[in-house]
Design a protein around this nucleic acid. Structure first.
Lengths: 209, 209
DNA sequence: ATAGTAATGTTGCAATTGCAACATTTTAGA
DNA sequence: TCTAAAATGTTGCAATTGCAACATTACTAT
């Protein structure tokens, strides 16, 4: 996965951030972030820490929409923060860089090659985000739990070129990702295992087909 | 929705396209496009015509993944064309502009303001695509057909600021979009109507709550 | 105008799933 | 090390859904 500052030297990064008038912000664990940037049009980069974007359902359910780890970016334009029912919460002490959107665009007029690289990285990251969502949609549009699982396995195994899949989340979160009931998913995984399609060792799943 | 050439004059557009070394391509109705651009890293803009991105399922089902109308863009980096099971088909005679990705990035070094505008538009379009997919995911993660419908209504009605919803597709396509069985959807729409939540007049749905 | 095709409406039924309730295991923090 | 909380495994059952089959209506091209 591309990082916003890939192929930009530390020195040029400093220079770039100065030109973009980037602001560094600090948040304590469990602090809400959205209120700070509400109304503004910015891009944020998580330097250290870990942020969750959470939606509070009408029925009182809380769903994790997105998780922002170190070096990931979010944006008021594209991070589904738009809904009033969303919160951004720091799960750890967090250090952020905030860049106003307008500065990014204006900055482009410069001829510095690190600008070019920066824009290239940004375009790449946005493209990746689209692909990530395309993949999830491909999975969610399958009609049975079994087919959702198999589609997920197919995508991940193709991406990594391996029959071994290491789940990047707990099974509870996995069920959320697939938008199915956890127990029903557990049942179906057991079926797949009993039928000899897969092997499960805690979070490592091996495809036997 | 933003267009790639928004706020760029016709004259500057010509200039821009020359600098980007854009290629204009023509395709006959039902011609396949992917073979022409396979392996290359390009952005395409549909000038006239209409393209469908179609996936051929393992089970032999064909699903329309994306529809590209006039003035929309697609890209090898982000248009889910990656899978070998995908086709791009012109449904009408089609005129395309193809721009190599590298040219876009290199072009950024220029100081022309229409470049700035171009990049801004491109970023906006990619952001819109992310939001569009976020919305669909929000809908697909609802667990019942009723809740999917209601979420769809909520999103569209908020976007347009109106209780009147004009379906931009046939009911058959609508069911595909929600990833549910058409007949089951039809049943649920009838339920919602009978319970007085909505009113349906062909493709116009009015929310009564 | 009309024939042929696609879209829509309807319904019974079987399969899948969500839900609830509970036991067991794992994890994280004091 | 111990304890509380979170995650996981399991299963019966009711609700929802997909599927199939069919009738009806709306489009489209000749």
């Amino acid at each position: 996965m591309v990082n916003l500052f890939d192929k930009i030297s530390e020195k040029n990064k400093e220079k770039l951030l100065r030109m973009l008038e980037a602001n560094t912000l600090f948040f304590k664990k469990n602090a809400p972030i959205l209120s700070t940037i509400k109304g503004e049009n910015v891009i944020g980069i998580v330097l250290t820490g870990y942020i969750q974007i959470v939606r509070n359902d009408d029925n009182g359910n809380r769903t994790i929409i997105e998780e922002l780890e170190e070096n990931t970016i979010f944006g008021t334009l594209f991070s589904s923060i738009t809904g009033e029912d969303c919160e951004m919460i720091c799960r750890e002490d967090t250090k952020l860089i905030i860049i106003e959107y307008n500065r990014i665009i204006i900055g482009v007029q410069s001829n510095y090659t690190f600008y070019t690289q920066f824009i290239q990285n940004l375009l790449q990251i946005l493209s990746d985000k689209i692909n990530e969502r395309n993949d999830r949609i491909k999975i969610l549009t399958k009609k049975t739990i079994r087919n959702k699982l198999l589609e997920y396995f197919k995508i991940v195994s193709k991406r990594n070129g391996s029959k071994n899949i290491y789940l990047p989340f707990t099974f509870t979160e996995f069920a959320d990702y697939l938008a199915v009931d956890r127990c029903a998913m557990s049942r179906e995984l057991k079926n797949l295992k009993d039928e000899g399609f897969i092997e499960i060792k805690s979070k490592k799943i091996t495809l036997l087909y």
